[in-house]
Simulated assay, not measured.
Amino acid sequence: MKPLLPLLFLALLLSCNHSAQVNPKQQAVINAEPIEVPLQNGKARAYFASGCFWCVEAVYESVKGVDEAISGYAGGHTKNPTYEDSNTGRTGHAEAVEVIYDPKIVSFETLIDVYFASQDPTQVNGQGPDIGSQYRSIIFYQNKAQKNSILKKKTALEKKLGEPVAAEIYPFQKFWKAEDYHQDYERLHPENPYVQNVSIPRLNKFKRKMPEVLKENH
């Protein structure tokens, strides 16, 4: 009977893993119709998740045509998520940013290029030292045209790299703004060890890759 025990354990393990991965509430988010955010005072909004939102916020705020990037949470199935909730990995949310931009100056397609240029596109469930589903990479689309642009650029990058790109593609549903102390964190706390050792190097690496999109004071 001993040879059967490992097989039974393996079958049980696979069964449990399968059950853990299938979350009906999260699947409903993935399958939902996208919500399109209307222009406000001529400004559009786009949503991206790519590891720690302190890092991503700083990257997008360095780009010409971007008025502001706001840290928050998106992509999950719970309402009113907090930083503590998100860190459990059970909400489905990822740390994300809302990018407020002028589409006459910078296009959504360029924002996708910024997204991929400012991260390790092959890292699954995290960026750098930040590991977990709350740090996974997601690009949110608001309509079919945006989805097609994301798919086209992701496919091209996979072909260039010769390996899968980790970014998930979600229909945008809702952005939950993070707590006030997270906003503009890199700019306000340059002495923070994480900012010095992770955020600033990540920003500088991006700047070297896409100097043509940077604001003059960056």
Rank of each mutant, 00 (worst) to 15 (best):
G75C: 03
A94F: 03
C52G: 12
F53A: 15
E68N: 15
S86N: 15
N87Y: 03
G92W: 01
A69L: 07
G75V: 00
A96L: 03
A96W: 04
T91D: 08
D67K: 09
G51W: 04
T88Q: 10
E68K: 15
A74P: 14
E61L: 07
V59R: 02
E84L: 08
G72H: 09
E61W: 04
E57H: 10
I70Q: 06
V63H: 13
T78L: 14
N80Q: 08
W54N: 13
V63E: 13
Y83P: 10
F53Q: 12
A94W: 06
C55W: 01
K79F: 06
A74K: 07
E68M: 12
H93N: 12
A69G: 10
T78V: 14
F53I: 11
S86A: 15
H93V: 10
K64F: 06
A96R: 09
R90Y: 02
E84G: 07
V63F: 09
V97Q: 13
V99Y: 14
E68D: 14
I70W: 00
G51R: 02
R90T: 06
V59I: 13
T82R: 07
E95S: 09
R90W: 01
F53Y: 14
A49W: 01
P81K: 02
A69N: 07
E57D: 08
N87I: 00
G92I: 05
C52S: 06
A49P: 11
E95T: 01
V63C: 10
V97C: 11
T91F: 12
V66G: 03
E61I: 00
T88W: 13
S71R: 06
H77L: 02
A74I: 12
G72R: 07
G65T: 03
G72S: 13
G92E: 07
T78A: 03
S62M: 12
N87V: 02
A94T: 11
H93G: 01
K64Y: 05
E98R: 09
G72M: 12
G76S: 04
A69P: 05
F53W: 10
A49E: 03
A49V: 02
G75L: 08
D85P: 03
